[in-house]
């Protein structure tokens, strides 16, 4: 494949992708999406939140989970960074601490896919900064 160096190259890729992907209906509908928010403040970044976020994006794609991965600020659990807030459709948000790749894998395989409770949940007594 040729090197991608300009917007024209990007457009070419976009056309390819466009003809290939199934455009999901309601793909941005919050009722059907799993929302994953990664704490991306100083404390999170220093603990590897960037790698955690990349992993969540790649792994949810890989497993074809309808998820939207975004960033949020510090929730005050600096000791437990990287922290991740997961909201399953129609459920209350759940916050997990110390989310490295192994933990992220467990969250996807057990909490997101099977809905099981797993170790490492932080009781949610805060409001996210967006609220």
């Amino acid at each position: 494949m040729n090197k991608i160096t300009s917007l024209a190259d990007l457009k070419r890729i976009k056309e390819q992708v466009h003809s290939k992907i199934r455009m999901r209906e309601n793909s941005d509908n919050a009722d059907t999406l799993v929302q994953i928010k990664v704490g991306m403040a100083t404390c999170g970044i220093a603990s590897g939140a960037k790698e955690t976020m990349t992993y969540f994006i790649e792994e949810t794609e890989h497993q074809a989970i309808d998820a939207v991965v975004t960033q949020t600020g510090c929730m005050g659990y600096c000791y437990a960074e990287p922290t991740v807030e997961v909201t399953l459709p129609g459920q209350e948000p759940v916050v997990f601490g110390f989310v490295n790749k192994a933990k992220a894998r467990e969250i996807i395989d057990r909490y997101i896919i099977k809905g099981e409770m797993i170790d490492g949940m932080i009781p949610v007594t805060y409001k996210t900064i967006d609220e």
């Binding site: 160096t5 300009s6 890729i13 390819q16 992708v17 994006i57 939207v68």
Partner: peptide, 12 residues
């Protein structure tokens, strides 16, 4: 966030 696009932009 479309996988192919995300990768292509990073590469660009």
């Amino acid at each position: 966030r479309t996988p192919e696009i995300r990768k292509a932009v990073t590469e660009l």
